[in-house]
Design a protein around this nucleic acid. Structure first.
Length: 213
DNA sequence: AGAGAGCTGATTGGCGGGGT
DNA sequence: ACCCCGCCAATCAGCTCTCT
């Protein structure tokens, strides 16, 4: 015996159930003005009764925003799982996005060229509304790509690396300097440091600060 | 009569599938 | 190969109704 699939509930069904137009349903669910509270309640009740949820594909089709944020990470999957920083980072991003009913589209890439292709494909295919860029390098090609595409991004990296993109960063230089000073104050004179990949911009900043300290 | 609230419904968009 | 249609939510010009 084959189960009959439940017919898909659309905004049209909700509108019919509530006795309003599709436009009114749209206004209600997007918290736009122009509807009385009574009509709004009636629409919400109808949607609950029918079990309606917005069709994200159709919403994207209509040319409105895409509630998905892209994050491409240049790491082997096995290594990524061992990096506590990334696990914390992803969970932090996810928790904020969830508050806004948005999702994270995560992709592991092998190199920067692949990431450039992925970001362009995501944006052109309207799979994302914006991206978070990490692991900046000197003369990073993503800066030019973002400007060319008009892709909204938040860059995680020092402004000296992110070329004027909206950025968030930690003060790597001060952190390293303070760590070295602290160890020196304890009497240590031979201090070693384990760093990340030399090509990464933040590694360069930390190395320079370490050498100077 | 005029203003404003509440609401309607045509239009828009990318793409796959069907028809010619 | 080309054209047309349907999918479905968002948008907004314009309509109806109520109130002053």
């Amino acid at each position: 015996m084959t189960a009959t699939p439940t017919p898909r509930v659309t905004i049209k069904d909700v509108a019919a159930r509530a006795g309003v137009s599709k436009g009114a349903v749209s206004l209600a669910f997007n918290h736009k003005p122009g509807l009385s509270e009574a009509t709004r309640d009636r629409i919400f009740r109808a949607a609950r009764e029918l079990g309606w949820a917005p069709n994200l594909t159709a919403r994207t089709l209509a040319g409105s925003r895409v509630d998905v944020v892209g994050l491409a990470v240049c790491r082997p999957a096995r290594v990524l799982g061992l990096e506590p920083w990334y696990m914390e980072f992803v969970s932090g991003v996810e928790s904020v996005l969830a508050e806004h009913s948005s999702s994270l589209l995560l992709r592991l890439v092998r190199n920067l060229d692949e990431e450039v292709g992925v970001q362009e494909s995501w944006w052109r295919g309207r799979q994302i509304g914006g991206s978070i860029l990490v692991d900046f390098r000197a003369d990073d090609p993503r800066v030019g790509l973002v400007e060319r595409l008009g892709l909204p991004v938040v860059a995680v990296g020092h402004p000296s690396l992110t070329g004027g993109l909206t950025s968030v960063w930690t003060d790597d230089a001060t952190a390293v300097t303070e760590a070295v000073r602290y160890l020196a104050a304890l009497g240590h004179r031979r201090i070693a440091r384990l760093g990340g990949a030399a090509a990464l911009g933040h590694t360069g900043i930390r190395t320079a600060a370490f050498d100077e300290a």
